[in-house]
């Protein structure tokens, strides 16, 4: 089976300081990979290099494109990368304000990716936006409201709808439940898990919150000081951690 994403020796340093070093992994279709670690572990740097927001120093990010099969995203032209970014890829930011247009209505936010790839029928765009608001449990009556009038949890759900409307094959999520109340987090996680399973999405979820990966991720990568120090099936890593650092990480969450 061809991996959806094949990452080889990805390295990023900031003027001598290590962001991430020699990270390699494969992600198969339908799989959710969790990347955990404390702040400064390199997990966010890695995510941003994968998603094309940061140029890595070296390495390859090979994506199995629909049209041409496996291609190194890092050597694609900018138009190709942008097209990927609004069709097959999606990025859910921790802060919904970074992923939403706050001056545009909820419907316009969801419809933007459709229009970016050529949708030109208002009625159909609106119908799809309505459908997607429903799927993320936002009332249809809010379709013309701006996200600034929404709660944090609603904003995050809107960001997810806006990202998933084009049926992406790979979703990057950066602390998707960060900054939300615990009860809101639980509902959001349930929703994300349902969408991921129903759509058969492949996803890479970066978080410091082990409860998030316990619920969402099939496999885990544990990072420390820019290195991957442990990988495995999620239950296996969380229930029987091998690396001393992972043991520490797991035990600290158990105390919560």
């Amino acid at each position: 089976m061809t991996p959806l994403l094949d990452v080889k020796d990805l390295t990023k340093t900031y003027g001598g300081r290590v962001g991430c070093t020699d990270v390699s992994f494969r992600l198969y279709p339908g799989e959710v990979l969790g990347i955990v670690g404390e702040s400064g572990s390199g997990k966010s740097t890695l995510l941003n290099c994968l998603a094309g927001h940061l140029p890595p120093d070296r390495g390859q990010v090979i994506f199995d494109t629909r049209a041409e099969g496996p291609r190194d995203v890092l050597t694609m032209s900018e138009p190709e990368r942008r097209m990927l970014g609004r069709t097959d890829w999606a990025f859910v930011h921790q802060n919904p304000r970074d992923g939403l247009r706050m001056r545009i209505s909820a419907g316009g936010n969801v419809g933007e990716r459709l229009m970016a790839v050529g949708a030109r029928h208002y009625g159909e765009i609106r119908a799809q936006a309505t459908d997607w608001l429903g799927r993320v449990e936002i009332s249809e009556t809010r379709i013309d409201d701006r996200p600034s009038a929404f709660s944090g949890g609603m904003q995050q759900r809107l960001q997810i709808a806006r990202n998933l409307v084009t049926g992406p094959r790979l979703v990057f999520m950066d602390e998707p439940t960060g900054g939300l109340d615990v009860s809101v987090q639980a509902r959001l996680l349930d929703l994300i898990r349902g969408l991921v399973r129903r759509m058969g999405l492949s996803a890479i979820v970066v978080t410091h919150d082990l409860a998030v990966v316990r619920l969402l991720a099939d496999r885990l990568m544990v990072m420390k000081d820019g290195h991957v120090i442990e990988t495995g099936l999620t239950d296996q890593v969380l229930d029987d951690p091998q690396a001393p650092y992972t043991q520490l990480l797991v035990s600290s969450v158990l105390q919560v």
């Binding site: 609004r86 247009r101 545009i104 933007e112 229009m115 970016a116 790839v117 030109r120 208002y122 765009i125």
Partner: peptide, 8 residues
């Protein structure tokens, strides 16, 4: 795409 968002 953004141009059509404005019209939308």
């Amino acid at each position: 795409g953004l141009m059509h968002v404005k019209l939308y």
